[in-house]
Amino acid sequence: MISVPVLSLSGLTKRFGGIQAVSGVSFDLAPGAITAVIGPNGAGKTTLINLITGVLSLNDGAIRLEGADITNEPVHRRAVAGVARTYQTPQMAAGMSVLRNVMAGAYRFGRYGLLSTLLRPWTIITENEEMAERAAHALRRVSVPEEWWHQPASDLPYGLQRRVEIARALAQDPKVILLDEPAAGLNPSETADLARLLTDIAADGRAVLLVEHDMPMVMSISSHVVVINFGRKLAEGTPAQILTNPEVIAAYLGSDEEEAA
């Protein structure tokens, strides 16, 4: 990579009891590019996302965001610094409308503190308008039709919930966006839409980390692929390099063909 990495992971290690869930994983995320992390189920991919966001604490290793060490920062500070994510199963807040869910994503852009809301309650009127604007922008970008915006988010079809979740992450205007199997459960045409959307998001200059099982999609849109197995980095390179790497074929593609298909 020629460009300076947005996110740089070095030697990430996480143990659960005696099990090494992630051990010594290092790689960089470049701006404006999609980096895919692939590997069999249980390889430690979701754990990796939880480590980057700070949901899980590291046993060893360091994480740098645009050069700044965020290894010991709490979850919410990393989010404010520009890390956003989605989840394997969409996590829509119960009882909240689609728009309100996505507005919640814009949390860090609030201009007024709690004290101001307590003492000058009317300040939320303008702030809400701004946040609704951000949310609307994000929702249009992921093509959630406007007739859904005021429905309870948990009532939406599964595919739309996934897109709302991406919109919520986009509303954070993140530098790094971590996507945990965004294509799971989508039909082929939805997957194609998703691929276009992800390319588009990367084109903003954001670093996209894609954890995914859908190999054709991964290979077609990623500029860089990291293969993880048993918590260790097995290989790293361009899609073409990965596809021809004999170790990868043996460990992953070969042994797990039905998933790779």
Binding site: T53, G54, V55, P74, V75, H76, A79, V80, V83, A84, R85, Y87, Q91, M92, A93, A94, G95, M96, R100, N101, M103, A104, G105, A106, Y107, R108, G110, L114, T117, L118, P121, W122, I124, E127, N128, M131, R168, Q172
Partner: peptide, 25 residues
Amino acid sequence: ALVDGRFGRGLEVLRTSEVVAACMG
């Protein structure tokens, strides 16, 4: 004002999942 504003939205997300709330800041 509290519940209609961003504090309230944060709380509602938090009610469903503290992880999701923290990950949005």
